[in-house]
């Protein structure tokens, strides 16, 4: 059998078998009726046939199921379009060298957890010397002047510091997502940046466990990075974006891509073509669990 990307299905051990595993709990005692209810629900999910791998009593009045089924549905993989950060992943030495050679000065990066967010784990992983998963933080880059402003930095304060410190890049980390506070704070920052005329001058990057690239774009940012992002991925994006905006020839030399839509000079920012609208509305994220340990 040959892979048909126009009708892509999950893979178990035979192409197009459509095998899916799913687990859930029903708020009823385990019983023959409960099992049948689980089967019917799985059928409604589009599985055929349905195998109940196990039905367990999770507590009085609760039955837990693990189910395997064969999914009938498929998707056309050739038609899929996703908004994502397009920069090539580069190493620290290469990034430093690109900045040295083409920009000739350190890029100034300011990072913070904004609003009342006190969870610095994300911004620390990206900026602090030590970095994350063996990938050194931005502080370690010779040609980046990266500063971590820490937690609970208010949007006004951040923009003031950015203007005063001639920042090239702003990194904002948002971990707390209750009542979509992360979206509100991110949008507010960009609205204020626009009023101060900073929106087009600087590169704005958002990050966090519930931040995606489309979400960041919707909030007016230039890019968004989710959980597990390494510092070098952020640095790779930042340096490419800077070249694309300010040094299109260098951008073409480094990336081999045309800097289409790139502006010629930072002093005269052309209105940015914002054709990158997310295709889907933001889904309401469940508040991330913050285990209060004491």
């Amino acid at each position: 059998m040959e892979l048909n990307l126009k009708k892509l299905k999950p893979y178990g051990d035979i192409l197009d078998d459509g095998v899916v595993q799913v687990s859930f709990t029903l708020p009823v005692e385990p019983s023959a009726e409960a099992r049948e209810a689980a089967i019917q629900l799985a059928q409604k999910m589009g599985f055929e046939p349905v195998k109940v791998a196990t039905m367990e009593k999770a507590a009085n009045g609760f039955a837990f199921f693990v189910i395997y089924g064969n999914l009938k549905a498929s998707v056309d993989f050739t038609q899929i379009k996703v908004l994502k950060v397009e920069s090539e992943k580069r190493g620290r030495d290469e990034i430093d060298e690109i900045i040295r050679k083409h920009i000739g000065r350190k890029l100034v990066v300011l990072g913070a957890c904004t609003g009342y967010d006190a969870h610095t784990v994300g911004i620390d992983a990206i900026i602090n010397m030590k970095g994350f998963a063996g990938d050194y933080g931005l502080e370690r880059y010779q040609w980046l002047d990266a500063r971590n402003l820490g937690a609970q930095v208010q949007n006004d304060e951040l923009l003031k510091l950015a203007a005063a410190g001639k920042a090239d890049v702003i990194l904002v980390s948002k971990v707390v997502t209750q009542h979509n506070i992360h979206v509100k704070d991110l949008k507010e920052l960009m609205a204020k940046a626009a009023r101060l005329g900073l929106k087009e001058k600087l590169i704005f990057v958002a990050g966090g466990p519930r931040v995606t690239h489309p979400l960041a774009l919707e909030c007016g940012f230039d890019a968004g990075f989710g959980v597990g992002t390494k510092p070098s991925e952020v640095a790779s994006y930042v340096v490419e974006e800077y070249l694309k905006r300010h040094l299109p020839e260098a951008y073409e030399e480094v990336t081999g891509k045309k800097a289409s839509g790139a502006r010629k000079a930072a002093s005269k920012p052309a209105p940015k073509a914002r054709s990158r609208k997310p295709t889907k509305p933001i889904r309401k994220a469940k508040p991330r669990r913050a285990r209060a340990r004491v």
Binding site: S23, F24, T25, A58, A59, F62, F64, P209, V227, K286, R288, R289, R291
Partner: peptide, 9 residues
């Protein structure tokens, strides 16, 4: 742990 407050299951 990395996703949500624990579900019953």
């Amino acid at each position: 742990e990395a996703m949500h407050t624990p579900l019953l299951q």
